[in-house]
Design a protein around this nucleic acid. Structure first.
Lengths: 351, 351
DNA sequence: CTGTTAGCGCATTCAA
DNA sequence: TTGAATGCGCTAACAG
C-alpha cells in the first residue's frame, strides 16, 4: 500500500538504460528504441516483451542521450526580465504547461531588467542546446542575447517585445495602442494633467511604447506632455519618489508602465497624503489578477498573459517541428481596458 | 559598433565542437578539454593557442555531451505548486540566481496543487538527468514524486514542506509555530471567534500545519475551534464563498492559509458588505511584497521566501558536490509577525 | 521485421 | 606535458 520506500541516504543508483531493457527482452537496443519511440516496425510478440521489460525495469529513456544524437534537447529556454512580476509568472505558467504537453521541459533565466545581463543569463540556456527559446528582451533591435541565439541557430520567439525587424517570430500586444486607449479613457474622464511613471524605462521597449501611446493621445487632445518619471522600482515594495512630478505637474491622473508599479504608485500617493482616486487617479498595464482584488480595484489595460505564454510555446513548438508558418510571424493579442476604482472623474478643482 | 547581425531566417548553423577547436589549435581534444575545464596540466604555449581558438571560434562546450559522460547535467529541477503564487515566484527567483552562479540551469515544473500531478510534472525533469531536485510537494510522507526522485538516485531538497522522516534535506519554516504566533496576535487583540480559511487544504501540508498552530492557540485560550473552510481558490481571483462560515461562526477575524488567499478573503468580505478591519480582521501567511503595498496593508507572518530559494539551491549544490553536511539536514528559517491594517481590535459588539 | 553499427560531444583513462 | 582511445545512452542508417 505504501509508495516506494524512500531511501534515507542518497543511493547513487544507476539509471536503467536501453541496454538493460534490450537484455531483459532478449533483443537489440534498436528494437527497444523503435518501441519506445514508436518508430519503425516491430512484431507484436517482441513489442510485448519489450513493453514488459520497460515496465518491470521502469525504464525512462535518458533525454541526454537522445539530445546528443538529435543535436537538440526537448527543452525550451525562457528568458524573462523577472519571474516575480505576476505578468511574467502568468506567461511562464502557461508556457510551461503547453511545453510539457508538447513533451518539452522548460529552462528559465532572468535578466533582472538589465540588458547587460541578458547574455550571461541566456548563455547557460544555449549551452543546454534547447529546441528553442522564448525571450522577452530589453531592446530587441540591439539585443546581444538574440544575436547569440540566432548565431547558435536556435529557433526563437520573442514575447511581449515590440516588433523590430521582420522575419521574427513574435507574440505580443499593441503596447502603443494600449497606451492611447488608456490615456483616452483618462481624458474622457476629464483629466488634463496626466503623468507617466515607468520603472527602468530604458530597459523596457514595452514601457517606451506605452508611453508613446499615451503621448499620442495627449498630443491629439492638445494636452501637456511630460517626460516619463523613472521610478527605481523592480517588482518590489521599494519607495517610489513622486515628489517632483507632483509638485511640478500636479497631475490629476498617473499612468504607470505596469500594474505592479501602479500599485506602488497608489501606495506612494497615499504616503503623500493624497487619496486615490479622489485626488489622483491611477492606472496601469497588464491586468494582473491581484489588481482586481484590492480596493480600490486597479484600472488597467489587460491582456491575456497566460495565453501569451501558451501561444508563444505553441508557436515555438511549431517552428521546431518545421511546421513554421510564414517565417517571422507576428501574433498580436488583444487588449482590453478594464475600469477600476482607482480611476474617477478629474476633481473639480482641476477643471 | 552594431552587435552581431541577426539572421532573418533560421540558420541551422552547426555549433562548433571541441573537435573544431582542437583542429584549429593543432592539438587533441583532450588538451582542449583540459584547458576549458582547467583540469590536468597544459603547457603555457598550448594553453594560449587553445584559448585563442576557443575565442575565435566562440566555442561553448555542449552541456549535453558533458552530461552524457558525467551521467548528470549541470541542471537543477524545481517542482512547485504554481509559479504564479508570489511566494513561489520569489523562491524560484532566488533559486535560479543561486543556481546560475553555481553554474547550473534551472528546469521548472508545476503540480497545480494536485498530488496526482506531481509525478507527471517531475518525470520530464528526471528524464533530463538533473544534478538535483528541489521539491515542494503536497504531502512529503506519501509523495510519489519524491519516491521517483529517490529511485533515480537524484539528490533532493524539499522546500517549504513539513519535516516528515529524518534523513531528508529540507529548507522550511515553522508553519505550526507561525500559526500559533498569528493566532496569539489575534487573540491578544481581543478576537474570540476566529475562522481559518484554506485553499486546497488537502494539497498543502503547510496549510495543515498552520491550521494546527492556530488551533493550538485557540485551544490554549479556551476558544472555539472550527474546522477549516476550504475555498476553491488557486492563485486566482476566483470567488470565495464565505457565506456559511460568516453565518455560523460570525467570526471577528479570519486567518487565511496564505497571503494570496487572504487578499481574496478581504475582497469576499467586502462583497458581503463587511468592512476590513472594522467588522472583520484578516491575516495571512507568506509576507508577499504586495501585501505591504495595498490598503489596508495585509497583516501576515512573513518569511524570507527568496532566501529560502537561495538556501535550497545552495544546500542542493552542496549535496551534489559531495559537500553534503550531515545527510538529511533540516534548515528552519525564521518567521516574523508583520502587523498590518487588516488587523484591528475585535469590535466591541463581539466582546 | 530485426540486428549491427556508427557516431552525436565530451571527460577520462592510459600510454607515450 | 600530450594524444589516442574508450564509452556515456541513444537514434538512425544499413544489412540481413
Amino acid at each position: 500500500m505504501d509508495p516506494t520506500p524512500i531511501p534515507t541516504s542518497d543511493t547513487p543508483r544507476k539509471a536503467t538504460t536501453i541496454k538493460d531493457v534490450a537484455r531483459r527482452a532478449r533483443c537489440s537496443i534498436a528494437s527497444v528504441s523503435r518501441v519506445v519511440n514508436d518508430s519503425g516496425p516491430v512484431s507484436g510478440a517482441l513489442r510485448l516483451r519489450i513493453a514488459a521489460a520497460v515496465a518491470e525495469l521502469e525504464f525512462r529513456p535518458s533525454e541526454v542521450g537522445r539530445s546528443l544524437v538529435l543535436k537538440r534537447s526537448r527543452t525550451i529556454g525562457v528568458l524573462v526580465p523577472s519571474v516575480t512580476n505576476p505578468v511574467f509568472a502568468d506567461c511562464l505558467a502557461g508556457l510551461q504547461e503547453t511545453a510539457r504537453r508538447g513533451g518539452h521541459a522548460v529552462l528559465i533565466a532572468q535578466s533582472n531588467y538589465e540588458a547587460g545581463r541578458e547574455v550571461e543569463a541566456i548563455e547557460p540556456l544555449i549551452a543546454e542546446r534547447p529546441a528553442g527559446l522564448v525571450l522577452t528582451v530589453c531592446d530587441p533591435a540591439s539585443s546581444e542575447a538574440r544575436a547569440r541565439a540566432a548565431a547558435a541557430g536556435i529557433p526563437t520567439v520573442l514575447l511581449f517585445n515590440e516588433a523590430s525587424d521582420p522575419g521574427v517570430a513574435l507574440v505580443t500586444v499593441d503596447n502603443r495602442g494600449a497606451g492611447r486607449d488608456l490615456a483616452a479613457a483618462l481624458i474622457g474622464r476629464g483629466h488634463r494633467r496626466i503623468a507617466f511613471v515607468a520603472g527602468r524605462f530604458a530597459a523596457s521597449d514595452r514601457a517606451r511604447a506605452r508611453y508613446e501611446g499615451v503621448r499620442d493621445a495627449l498630443v491629439a487632445a492638445g494636452l501637456p506632455v511630460e517626460p516619463p518619471v523613472e521610478a527605481d522600482f523592480i517588482d518590489g515594495p521599494d519607495r517610489i519618489d513622486l515628489a517632483d512630478i507632483l509638485d511640478r505637474l500636479r497631475p490629476t491622473a498617473i499612468v504607470a508602465s505596469n500594474d505592479l508599479l501602479a500599485i506602488g504608485v497608489v501606495a506612494a500617493l497615499r504616503r503623500h497624503g493624497l487619496a486615490v482616486p479622489d485626488d489622483v487617479s491611477v492606472a496601469g498595464f497588464d491586468g494582473i489578477a491581484i489588481g482586481g482584488l484590492i480596493a480600490p480595484s486597479l484600472a488597467t489595460i489587460a491582456w491575456p498573459a497566460r495565453a501569451m505564454g501558451t501561444t508563444a510555446a505553441a508557436m515555438l513548438l511549431d517552428l521546431v517541428a518545421g511546421r513554421g508558418r510564414e517565417p517571422g510571424r507576428t501574433l498580436t493579442l488583444p487588449h482590453l481596458f478594464r475600469p477600476g476604482g482607482t480611476l474617477a472623474d478629474a476633481p473639480n478643482t482641476s477643471r
